[in-house]
């Protein structure tokens, strides 16, 4: 663990402790590399595991062309899912547990076999998948006002917050995920629609990217891990009182609410 990793891990942890966003790491150290940013993420996750959290999966971020263009990058990023990030389907999230939440709809994969890069394909991902589920990801940033560059969000566990899984597992051979339509509602009003192909053309290709990326860090995806494969639509801001619901073709629906 380098001094840099420790310093910026503490910086990000400050945001959670005080409930207020902190300055972008890229402002404090403009020449920080993506590799160093992942190093910071691994330290923050290590600290949480030491404190008793358990890693239950991964999330893939920046999978849409729109998000990649916004952050001027040409590849996704990833973060860790911990057991204390899970919210029950239909559950209520207290605003005291989040900073500046945004909600997006995704397809979640649950693996039955491990996947180890560097040459994992989308087809292998489907073969290694136990089932898929509709999911809501509540992304959140420890960086004030979401003023993030790629290195900021990578260091900040890919802006992970909380996540909700739908209740009906579906086998991956029962659906063409690339064309599975999605409708996303906030307080009953349609916010946007999408299809599986919104995530890098194919959600399974996102998981393959993750397995291959993790190989760089000597990590594999394990059986039982939950993988959030990437947003199918733009993230929508949440305020207390809001109710979010996503319906995904062939996969059912998933919902969550926010309160003070």
């Amino acid at each position: 663990m380098s001094d840099l990793e420790t310093k910026f891990a503490e910086h990000l942890e400050q945001a959670v402790a005080t409930g207020r966003g902190v300055a972008p790491i890229t402002e404090m150290k403009p020449d920080i590399t993506i590799q160093e940013a992942y190093g910071i993420q691994l330290v923050t996750i290590g600290n949480k595991v030491t404190a008793g959290s358990r890693i239950v999966g991964k999330k893939i971020g920046l999978t849409s062309l729109a998000m990649q263009q916004l952050l001027k990058v040409d590849q996704p990023d990833y973060g860790h899912l911990l057991d204390d990030m899970v919210v029950e389907n239909g559950g209520v999230i207290s605003f005291s547990s989040v900073l500046q939440p945004r909600v997006e709809a995704e397809i979640a994969f649950v693996l039955k076999k491990e996947l180890i890069g560097p040459h994992v394909t989308a087809a292998e991902v489907l073969l290694a998948t136990d089932y898929v589920l509709p999911a809501l990801e509540i992304v959140d940033s420890r960086i004030a006002d979401w003023k993030i560059k790629l290195q900021d969000t990578v260091a900040d566990n890919a802006s992970s917050g909380l996540y909700v899984l739908g209740g009906k597992p579906v086998k991956p051979d029962a659906v063409d995920l690339t064309l599975a339509g999605m409708a996303f509602y906030k307080n009953g009003e349609l916010m946007n629609t999408g299809v599986g192909a919104a995530a890098l053309g194919n959600p399974a290709a996102c998981v393959a990217w993750l397995a291959n990326k993790l190989f760089e860090f000597g990590i594999g995806l394990k059986a039982g891990e939950v993988i959030l494969s990437g947003a199918l639509s733009a993230a929508v801001n949440a305020v207390p009182g809001d109710h979010f619901r996503a319906r995904i073709a062939h996969l059912g629906e998933v919902s969550v609410s926010f309160q003070e």
Partner: peptide, 26 residues
Amino acid sequence: ELDLLGVTLSINGKIKDLGAGAAVVG
């Protein structure tokens, strides 16, 4: 399920836009 019917529109192999049936007045 027409409101969840997914559609991709590609030109020369690249997806230009996509959506589901609900995009049409719900």
